[in-house]
Write a protein that binds this DNA or RNA. Sequence first.
DNA 1: AGAATTTAATGCGAAACGGTATAAAATATG
DNA 2: CATATTTTATACCGTTTCGCATTAAATTCT
Lengths: 203, 203
Amino acid sequence: MKDEKKRGRPRGFDAKAALGKARDVFWDKGFSAASLDNLSAATNLNRPSLYGAFGDKEALYLDALEGYRQDGMGVLTEALDPSLPLRDNIARVYAGALAIYLHGETAARGCFLIGTATAEAIQHERVREVLGRSLTDFDGEIEKRMRLAVERGELPDSADPQMLARLASAVMHSLAVRARAGDSRETLEAIARSGVELICGRS
Amino acid sequence: MKDEKKRGRPRGFDAKAALGKARDVFWDKGFSAASLDNLSAATNLNRPSLYGAFGDKEALYLDALEGYRQDGMGVLTEALDPSLPLRDNIARVYAGALAIYLHGETAARGCFLIGTATAEAIQHERVREVLGRSLTDFDGEIEKRMRLAVERGELPDSADPQMLARLASAVMHSLAVRARAGDSRETLEAIARSGVELICGRS
DNA sequence: AGAATTTAATGCGAAACGGTATAAAATATG
DNA sequence: CATATTTTATACCGTTTCGCATTAAATTCT
């Protein structure tokens, strides 16, 4: 469904890979501090090619954000596999987050969204919109699992699924910030463990 | 102890007030997107005066961060008044945070540190250092109160004061991010209430 | 009063910025 | 093969950036 040969010179690069490289630059520097020269160098694309494929700098950034958001949702739904106990689900959510935030083992970059989009959110309405949607969608996915947990008796009937979900997200937001502030993997994992305990009950 | 008249032309502005105006600019735009022209206009200082009083842009930003950090610690210790019950203390911490994050009632700016310093933390080591220190100091102050709570029997002996403190901070970090993402005051206050419930026990 | 010293104002200057005009290269179509 | 169309490469344009050089103003010290 995409083999209709477009006429004209074919593009000589993989747009998805280039977007990933651009995302890495934004991830390290933030939107404002990342220059088109940086992005051009990282993607091996000259500026007109970048512009042609993605539009201007803001559009490229929004594309990168949206891709990250979708990847994150994928990791989340995978972690929330309802055949596992709730406690395992939440632990997996945090483990998945830390795998992204710690980036390999070495330098911690934290969360791309929380680490860079928050800074631009006041001035750039579209960035704020993506950020807000990401947070609420994340909350919502966890909330669904919390509702299921109440139905199944993993949580007491008195539990408030929406609020528990938001607090479960809150722990992750904190991991995102702390990772970028340079906290050690050990510290972050300890917080994650304690978070699971607190959210899912001490039973 | 500061009436020793310096010789030479006296400075014609209040450095502290100027720093506050500069902080507001950084708060809205972030470090990288804030230009010296913006800062100059907001403070009513021409660039050489800014430079003379605070040094370059990064030094000015670090000054603003440090001032915010200290203000925040002041609000925190006030909220943690040990003559009040733990539950009230934590509720006051969140209320104090939201008062800052929501800025009046209208446009939400979130937390200056979490909203802007996280973005620069990877590239600017000194910013990362201030951010990290701010987070750990905050945790530490709450941890002291948690220890006291265990001694007093407000929390069970089995409670882990360090981890409870970090999770209490986590809720605040989430408020900081969500405020900047545009969440309503009602939502944020509801999260704060639920956070108090979760941290301080459902009793 | 005059010298010394500090701050304030104007404005410059080199570099970096985002974005694009222009032309060459590569492919499909007729 | 010629033409149309799309991508790539080079180079450039106007603007904005940060920082400072220079000069004027205001105050203290001698």
